[in-house]
Every structure is written in C-alpha cells, then in structure tokens.
Nucleic acid binder design. Structure first.
Lengths: 250, 250
DNA sequence: AAGTGGTCTAGACCACTAC
DNA sequence: TAGTGGTCTAGACCACTTA
C-alpha cells in the first residue's frame, strides 16, 4: 500500500490523525459552522475535507457521538445534538419517583434579576469579581408535587439580552433555550451533592416545614472546550422522589 | 473481494457480527474461561476463533473496554478488568472532600451476621422471600473523619463460605474480594439518593448528633448479565465531603 | 526480536431514508 | 433511485512491552 499518503499524517506532533480530525470537527462546531439540530456534511465529504480515509473519519465521529455531541441517523445523516429533539430531553435531570416512574417537570419562574455575581458563582463560572450576571429561581413540579428549587446564575457576557419573558414563555427546556437563542450547547455537567435542611425561603417555596431534610445540589454546566456557562444551586425534596445515578451501563 | 466469507455472518438473525462476537466474549467471561486480571487471547487469535476479521473483533472489544469490562494495554495485551489494579480502584466511590481533594477510605467492620433477607433486600437482589443472606456494616474514614456507614447485604447463595475474617482482614477493596474469592465481577451499579437525618444507631456510629442531615444512598451492584450481587444502604455525612456526579466527559 | 495492541487505509456491500 | 450511515474485510505500518 502507498505510504506516502499515510506517513505524513502520523508525523503530527503529540497526537493521532483521528484526534486531529476530531479537534477539527469540534472547532467547526464551536465556531458555529454547523448549528444545533443541523446535519454536518456526509462522511465521504468530511473525509475529503480532512484528507483522511472514511475509517479514520468515522473513528473521530464515533468519539463525538459517544460524548453526545453528535447524533447519527442511519440513512439521514449526522446531526449536531439538540436538547429539544433526540429524546434525551432530560439527560441532566436525574430526579425520579421512588417507584422508578419518570415524568417530566413543570417549571415556574419564581424570581428574576440582574446582579453582581457572588464570590462562589464567580469562581465556578470563571468570572472576574463583580461580573454582571442574571439570577433567577425556578420551582419544579412533578405530578403536582413541588419537588425542587433551582437558583440559577448565568454570565451576562454569554447571555446578552436575556429577559424575564424569555424564561417565562419558553416552549422548551432551559438548555434548549441556551442552544437556540444564545448558541451555547451544554454538553457536560459537574454536580456535587450535600445533605441539607429546609429553612426560611426554601422551606416556604418548597411548601415544607423548616428542618425538612433536603438534597442540596451544586451544578456547573459546560459547553465546548470546558467553558462554564451556568452555575446553579438546587434543593431537592426527596419525600416522594429520588436522585438517580446509574453507572457504567451497556 | 470474496463475499462467500462475509455474507453468511450478516445473515444472523436480529444482530450483527460484532455484537455476536461481543456476546461470545462475554459468555466466555461469565463462564470463567478468563479470570479477573488475566490476559485474554491476542486479537488475531480471537479473530480466528470467531472467524471474523481483526477490525470486527476490535469493534467488539472496543465496546467491552468502553464498559470497563476489559482493559487494553498496548504492547502487553487485553485484560479482564480488576477492581484492585487498573487504578480505577474507586470507580463506584464518589465521595470527595469539599475542596475537591480525593483520598482513599479506611474501612472498619462494625457488625457481621447471617440472617434472612429483608423484604426490600429480596426485591432488589431478586431473591425468594426468606432467602439467607450475609449482613454487615462498614464504617468509612477519610482523613480521620468518620464519613459513611455502609449496611451491606449479600446473598448466601453467591457468597458461600464468607466469614467475618474474610471481611476484616482483606488486603484490598470489597469488590476485589468479590472478584478474587467468589468470581463475581461488579461491573455496574444503580444508586438512588435521598435526604435523611441521623438517628440512634447511625448517629452513634457516625459520631454526629441525632438530627444531623445525611445523604441516604441505596445501591444495587450488578455483575455480568445484570445479575445483582450486592445490596447496600449507606449514610453519608456531608459536613466536609460531597457526593460527586460528573457527567458525559471526554 | 517477537509479540501485542493502536492507527490507518481503500473499498465492498447492507440497511435505511427521502425524493 | 440516489444518498446516507452501518458493517465488515484484509492488510499495512506504528508504538510499545517483554525477554
């Protein structure tokens, strides 16, 4: 076989061909060349563009699919993953009823304001002290039970022009709004859980007595290149519901 | 190219060749042909055994590696994953200090007995009512803090001959003991978290006042073919520590 | 030096989708 | 029917490990 074609590629420093291709695709995605929900070019076309064989290109795409960044549909094409379609609406929503039944939450916007970021929010979002942010609180219902309270912080720099109406009237999920309106794709989250107690505000909004045990959840949501785009503290009432972690499945 | 070889394979009902190969490897693993820590035959050999090309065989192994069932080492071979080696000692241990620092827990056996399984344990372990089980309690320390209490239930049928000494003197992790002594490989867990409060026994053993908020964690651990092998209820003190869930990473 | 997994190729045919 | 992704092949060479 002719190695004049294969050899120069492997000479690329500190990497492999398919990783380079993956990086190239990721760069095109981050650069907005293909938007959420759109199809990317066919495998053969992309293979030509990057100057690699179809097998190598597929390996790059394989990894992006495994990371839920792209979605393949046989016979249709390969698409940029969307939080709205693709029926993984609630990849990051892990609350289920104690009998295992899954339902979709109803969301009510409780508060909305512009403010300066707290010290903790600055740290988690990688912002300079005093950076402007949007802060709002959502109340989540499942089966007519108030289950969770989300206190969400978004950098104003990334969500320029966000209004209370955007949040109140949105027809889809929050992360779909980030995607469609602001071009920010949440592809990974980091969540840390502690035990806590309902008090004052949170007790009132959750409709439970002060002192009720709650799960206190801190989440950072990331876009491409590990860019943090959202910081939230949630409080979960587990009287009827549970937080589910299923690990290393087929 | 000669298709007399390739064609008959794809005729296999309801599946693809590499899935068949994967199933074959999984069957050999479950049947004990290759034990934890051992190398499986080289790719070329396995390709011959299953009558497939090396590419197809690699795709089957790729998936088993992604599921943490096998581990590849370039130049050495492909090995059956072990909880002891492979430096993923604590795949299922998600407790970290609030500053993010990870340390390894020290375990003390608190109680050990044989008993009849509780109704809940029977259900989770898929046992008939009244099945015999081992029940024991572990106390976990991190940095000299008592952090977690594990109440663990194991079916006697799977862990025949288990003694208190086995648990007390083991040089490695619990899941490594399951592997080495009983041939049971934990490859997946299902965890459900609720908020709770320390009371009586748990407060005493954790060294906290009654009424301290805790995370209450229910876990089922599975081996091959979704066979449940362990059921546990843990109580986690999150005063200095957190339960970490990092999702969909590269 | 021999043996292992890791990368890459070039192209075949299949299954599915849309027109 | 044309175009897409899905599967599979046969074999090359590379990088790494062990002896």
């Amino acid at each position: 076989m002719n190695n004049d074609i294969a050899m120069p590629h492997t000479a690329m420093i500190g990497s492999t061909l398919y990783k380079e291709v993956k990086r190239g695709i990721l760069a095109a995605l981050a650069g907005g060349e293909w938007k959420a929900g759109e199809a990317i070019p066919a495998e053969r076309k992309l293979g030509e563009r990057f100057g690699v064989s179809i097998g190598t290109l597929r390996k790059a795409i394989d990894e992006l699919v495994a990371e839920n960044i792209l979605i393949r549909h046989q016979g249709r094409g390969t698409f940029v993953a969307t939080h709205a379609r693709d029926h993984h609406y609630f990849r990051f929503f892990r609350v289920v009823r104690q009998d295992g039944y899954k339902t979709y939450p109803t969301v009510a916007l409780e508060r909305f304001r512009k403010a300066k970021a707290s010290r903790e929010a600055c740290e988690k979002l990688g912002l300079g002290t005093g950076a402007r942010v949007f802060q709002f609180t959502n109340r989540l219902m499942l089966d007519d039970d108030i289950v969770m309270l989300d206190e969400i912080t978004l950098p104003e720099a990334l969500f320029a022009g966000l209004t209370e109406a955007d949040l109140r009237d949105r027809p889809t999920t929050l992360y779909n709004l980030y995607q469609d309106v602001f071009g920010l794709n949440v592809i990974r989250t980091d969540e840390r859980l502690r035990a806590g107690l309902a008090e004052g505000d949170s007790a009132r909004l959750l409709g439970v007595p002060a002192g009720t045990p709650l799960i206190e959840l801190r989440r950072i949501a990331f876009s491409y290149h590990d860019q943090p785009v959202e910081w939230r503290i949630s409080r979960l009432n587990t009287e009827k519901y549970e937080y589910l972690v299923s690990e290393a499945g087929a």
